[in-house]
């Protein structure tokens, strides 16, 4: 009965550019970044000054947790690290953190880069959905 957002083909299609290439927007008036992209600038309340912006695939690690009880559909990958990353432009995103072989080496504020991965797939017959995940840079 549960509708899983991530199974919705049209929704996933709508999000492709954001997930694949970190496409958001930048408001030339208030000099603010938006990710995911906004139809209207939240501050200026207009689309007039918005231009498409591709965020850099680098940032710093803020909080992280190791999820032992995985979200449905992620059980095969569990346990996995889940974190908040602040991109260079100051926008924050949540994502999985890969290749944590020694948690002791994770530090608040350390550099991470974003890589391209499969976010989820739906059995043998469903679609795969792709997007970004983070990797620590030691």
């Amino acid at each position: 009965m549960i509708i899983m957002t991530r199974k919705l083909v049209a929704e996933n299609w709508r999000l492709e550019k954001a997930r694949y290439a970190l496409v958001g927007n930048f408001c030339k008036k208030c000099l603010g970044y938006h990710f995911p992209k906004k139809q209207l600038c939240l501050r200026c309340k207009t689309s007039e000054h918005l231009e498409e912006y591709k965020f850099k695939h680098e940032g710093k690690l803020l909080e992280w947790t190791k999820i032992y009880d995985p979200a449905k559909g992620f059980d095969f990958a569990g346990p996995y690290y889940y974190c908040i990353v602040e991109l260079e432009e100051g926008i924050k995103i949540t994502t999985q953190l890969k290749y944590v072989t020694d948690e002791g080496r994770l530090k608040y504020g350390m550099k991470v880069k974003l890589v391209f991965r499969r976010l989820f797939s739906h059995g043998n017959e469903g679609l795969n959905t792709y997007g970004f995940k983070a990797v620590p840079v030691y």
Binding site: T5, R6, T65, I67, P70, A71, A77, Q96, F120, T129
Partner: peptide, 14 residues
């Protein structure tokens, strides 16, 4: 946020 959190692997306890 089911797109930017749950679909990235987030759980409520997470």
């Amino acid at each position: 946020d089911t797109i930017w959190e749950s679909s990235m692997g987030a759980t409520l306890p997470g």
